[in-house]
């Protein structure tokens, strides 16, 4: 991950490139807009290719500048969004809790990202899974939190969170969680990358077992 250090002036804010992936219509743009400008547009349009926004976030006294690339989820935009994967620090895999298909596609998104971001096989990359649209009613909900956690366990993803861009619930937390997760991966990665990959599985398993109903628990470990 040394290749990303260049983007980050040492004495200034730490710059983090965040890419938001997920099926079309799961609310990626809404998530970003809620996070950056605290706005929510019910009738938002499809994203064309990519969108980009900046946002400073303070965590533990350190300011991070997030460079957020919001991508278009439709298949026809595939060739337009994939160029932007390279050099990413954090990847947000999103789905909508009322859309089972979008959840099933997480695998596809993950592998698409790993392929185009040119990330080596066994490197641990800070993915975070975000289940959006928790504002829907119980009947409409198709993916439970348990399912999400199980998917994360199976796929070696350490962080996950459910959000609602509409209600502004957990949106800030999601991004902060992502940063914390990145910090953790970074510090471990710096020490010994290869060892880390081997350790990951156990660590995650334990943590996920201990995890309470609130996903935020994972950040505390």
């Amino acid at each position: 991950m040394s290749n990303r250090v260049n983007m980050r002036p040492t004495s200034k804010n730490i710059l983090l490139k965040v890419v938001i992936l997920g099926d079309g219509g799961v609310g990626k743009s809404c998530l970003m807009n809620r996070f950056v400008s605290n706005q929510f547009d019910e009738n938002s349009f499809h994203t064309i290719g990519v969108e980009f926004l900046n946002k400073d976030v303070e965590i533990d006294g350190e300011t991070y500048t997030l460079q957020i690339w919001d991508t278009a989820g439709q298949e026809r935009f595939k060739t337009l969004r994939t160029p932007f994967y390279r050099g990413t620090d954090i990847c947000m895999l999103t789905y909508a809790v009322d859309d089972k298909a979008s959840f099933r596609n997480l695998n596809m998104w993950k592998s698409e990202f790993l392929f185009y971001a040119d990330i080596k096989e066994n490197t641990h990359f800070p993915f975070i899974v975000v289940g959006n649209k928790t504002d829907v009613s119980c009947e409409e909900r198709k993916v439970t939190q348990m399912e999400m956690e199980m998917w994360c366990d199976e796929n070696g993803v350490a962080s996950c969170i459910e959000t609602s861009a509409k209600n502004a619930s957990n949106v800030q937390e999601a991004f902060k969680l992502a940063i914390r997760h990145w910090l953790k991966a970074e510090s471990k990665g710096d020490k010994n990358e290869s060892c880390y990959a081997a350790d990951t599985v156990d660590l995650n398993k334990r943590s996920s077992l201990n995890r309470s109903s609130c996903c935020m628990g994972s950040t505390e470990e």
């Binding site: 002036p9 200034k12 349009f45 990519v50 980009f52």
Partner: peptide
């Protein structure tokens, strides 16, 4: 509206770039 959003994104990217390089200079 779409065009405006795209314009916005491009401007953001440019400004971000310029900022980043300026930070480099300061560095």
């Amino acid at each position: 509206l779409d065009a405006q959003r795209c314009q916005h994104t491009l401007n953001n990217v440019i400004e971000n770039s310029i900022d980043t390089v300026r930070n480099k200079i300061i560095e």
